[in-house]
């Protein structure tokens, strides 16, 4: 489903060069639930961003669903992200000016989906995460756990095959965290491939496979 070959990421400023990822080779198969762990600053989020086509590697190759994406231009990359990938961020990244329903609709705005269909799909996604009674609310009116569930609804509304979650429980208490993990497990059971960055060992243990990074290098 996702294949990384000799991936390197170097951050350069005028005076400093930092190697964030060093020669990463990994494959995530369809239907897997993979967690990525490692100490702060080891490159977990950078790796997830590269896998999610949010950032470009300095070197190496990426394949998504059998397609090499190095040569893809903005328009093609955007379409691939829209159709294949869904994102869940630690700090939710909801748009405060839009209602819950409008937030969830965002990925569908960039497809040829009618307004009516968008509404229906967004409602369905919110029902899946148990928030159908909060559709008209705005993000500021929600708790952290509810916000993350909205973010999950947004990630799944376009029915992507891959969901990338960057510390989805990082800002939540353990009860809420477990609820979110349960939702992710259910999505995985329904066929989604999930890659999750986490600091939490107990959560990582509940996934199929663990990838461990240290100083930008894959150690497990």
């Amino acid at each position: 489903m996702i294949k990384l070959q000799n991936v390197e990421k170097v951050y350069r400023t005028s005076s400093v060069e930092t190697l964030a990822l060093n020669n990463i080779n990994l494959t995530v198969n369809k239907g897997e639930f993979v967690s990525i762990m490692g100490p702060s600053g080891c490159g977990k989020s950078t790796l997830l961003n590269i896998m999610g086509l949010l950032d470009e590697p300095s070197q190496g190759h990426i394949e998504i669903d059998g397609r090499r994406v190095e040569s893809y231009q903005d328009q093609k990359l955007a379409r691939l992200r829209n159709e294949k990938l869904g994102f869940i961020f630690q700090s939710f990244h909801l748009i405060n000016d839009l209602s819950v329903l409008d937030n969830v609709e965002i990925p569908l705005l960039y497809r040829n989906t009618s307004a009516k269909e968008r509404r229906e799909l967004a409602r369905e996604a919110l029902e899946k995460v148990g928030l159908s009674n909060r559709m008209k609310h705005f993000p500021k009116q929600l708790s952290g756990g509810q916000k993350q569930r909205v973010a999950i609804a947004r990630a799944i509304v376009g029915r992507p095959e891959i969901i990338l979650a960057d510390e989805p429980t990082g800002n939540l208490d353990s009860v809420m965290g477990n609820e979110i993990l349960a939702i992710l497990q259910k999505l995985n059971a329904d066929g989604a491939t999930i890659i999750m960055v986490t600091h939490d060992d107990s959560m990582a243990r509940q996934t199929h496979r663990l990838i461990r990074l240290f100083d930008g290098t894959q150690v497990q």
Binding site: D74, Q75, I106, G158
Partner: peptide, 16 residues
């Protein structure tokens, strides 16, 4: 900026 990031992440091309 965060909104721009979200929209791009979910498939908005720069042109859109």
């Amino acid at each position: 900026a965060s909104e721009i990031g979200v929209r791009k992440a979910f498939g908005a091309p720069a042109k859109t």
